[in-house]
């Protein structure tokens, strides 16, 4: 079961949202479900994280939004911009480096 976001999750919501939006346009609820599915239920981002993160990314020029009506329902759809793609590449690099460092630290015996 997905747990609430621990403090070391800083930057992870942005990374996941940018990654999921790389390639196709999505709306908030769709993204909440997609994060759970993409992370094998390991990460569940709440509404109070996803929507402000989307707004902040849009303010920073990483995303573009438009209100669209589909099958009688109106929703705000988000797409990645060129700046968003660069941000995604940067965040992904950072994450790989951190993940590698933590994995190495956990896998190696203590230096003491």
């Amino acid at each position: 079961m997905a747990r609430s976001n621990p403090p070391f999750m800083s930057g992870v919501p942005e990374l996941l949202l940018l990654k999921l939006l790389d390639g196709r346009e999505m709306y908030g609820y769709e993204l909440v479900k997609a994060v759970r599915a993409a992370t094998g239920e390991a990460i569940a981002l709440g509404e109070g994280v996803v929507y402000p993160a989307l707004h902040a990314l849009e303010r920073g020029g990483a995303l573009r939004s438009r209100r669209r009506s589909v099958a009688g329902r109106t929703r705000v759809y988000y797409t990645l911009t060129a700046r968003g793609r660069r941000r995604l590449a940067g965040l992904a690099d950072d994450w790989q480096r951190i993940q590698g460092g933590v994995a190495a630290a956990l896998g190696e015996p203590s230096h003491v």
Partner: peptide, 9 residues
Amino acid sequence: RLALEMADH
């Protein structure tokens, strides 16, 4: 806008 999107959600 957050309130509107939350209502959609």
